[in-house]
């Protein structure tokens, strides 16, 4: 690897750069090293690709798992008669899942899935492993958010649906969930942001997400400032964009409560 040395670099730099004060020269040098030299910006874009794929995959999986669990638990808790056997079993299983997932650190879950349970051999398999682990983890938190959302809708709403002859599932789908969704959107948004930031943990299963790639650049340049500040800015921009999209969605959904 050709090593980039500040003295050589500035000697060959354009005149306007040489005219800058020392600290600014050094800063431009670091920017150059981090992003431009040997096309290192590709580290960030490659890492972002992994971060996006894992976040979006885990988000979808987490919402599906969370929704299913919340429905099972709500159905169990709100059933008028003694729940039938299958429902009691599912409820028991969901409780076990929530206890285990919320009771162990995400890092530990990644290590177990990555090296014990799934032990993926290909890159695609490793990405899937990351998505599944994060999705299963997120599902536990989404489940509790969704459940609180379902509980926040008054019993009268589902009674009105049932009295019209709608089934439990139809009542849930057409009446309770749409209203609950609106209520839980802020909490769900928080969970999404947490998930995005938690993807940085996937480096333990040897995935190169954007955080890992920033570390790789820092390892190459032995400079921490520009790679890590850039990394922070990347996350910040992503979170700001997500927050903005969520607030637009919230405003749309609010149109019915004048």
């Amino acid at each position: 690897m050709t090593i980039l040395n500040f003295t050589d670099w500035i000697a060959n730099a354009p005149a306007w750069l040489q005219a800058l004060p020392d600290w600014l020269q050094n800063f431009v040098f670091q920017l150059y090293q981090t992003f431009i030299y040997q096309n290192r910006w590709k580290f960030f874009t490659d890492g972002l690709k992994i971060t996006f794929i894992v976040t979006i995959g885990a988000l979808i999986l987490g919402v599906i798992i969370g929704l299913l669990i919340a429905i099972v638990r709500t159905a169990h808790d709100s059933s008028v008669k003694k729940p039938f056997f299958l429902l009691r079993f599912l409820n028991w299983f969901c409780n076990l899942y929530l206890t285990v997932i919320r009771g162990t650190p995400m890092m530990v879950q990644l290590l177990i899935m990555g090296f014990v349970i799934m032990a993926p051999k290909t890159e695609a398999g490793t990405i899937a492993c990351g998505i599944i682990t994060l999705g299963i983890n997120s599902g536990a938190y989404v489940a509790e958010i969704v459940r609180s959302g379902l509980m926040s809708i008054s019993v009268g709403q589902s009674e009105a649906g049932r009295s019209l002859g709608l089934s439990y599932a139809q009542t849930m789908w057409h009446i309770v969930i749409p209203q609950a969704f609106k209520n839980i959107l802020p909490a769900l948004g928080n969970e999404m942001i947490t998930l995005l930031k938690d993807t940085s943990l996937v480096s333990v299963i040897a995935l190169r997400d954007v955080t890992k790639q920033a570390q790789n650049i820092a390892n190459k340049t032995y400079q921490a400032f520009v790679p890590y500040i850039s990394l922070a800015l990347i996350y910040l921009v992503l979170v700001i964009v997500m927050t903005k999209l969520l607030s637009i969605l919230e405003r749309r959904l609010r149109k019915s409560d004048h």
Partner: peptide, 21 residues
């Protein structure tokens, strides 16, 4: 029971209209 509930309309004290529709 869902089939038979269709034959019996119900009106509640708290109206219970669906606010999102």
């Amino acid at each position: 029971i869902n089939l038979h509930r269709q034959r019996m309309g119900m009106v509640f004290q708290q109206f219970n209209l669906f606010p999102h529709k």
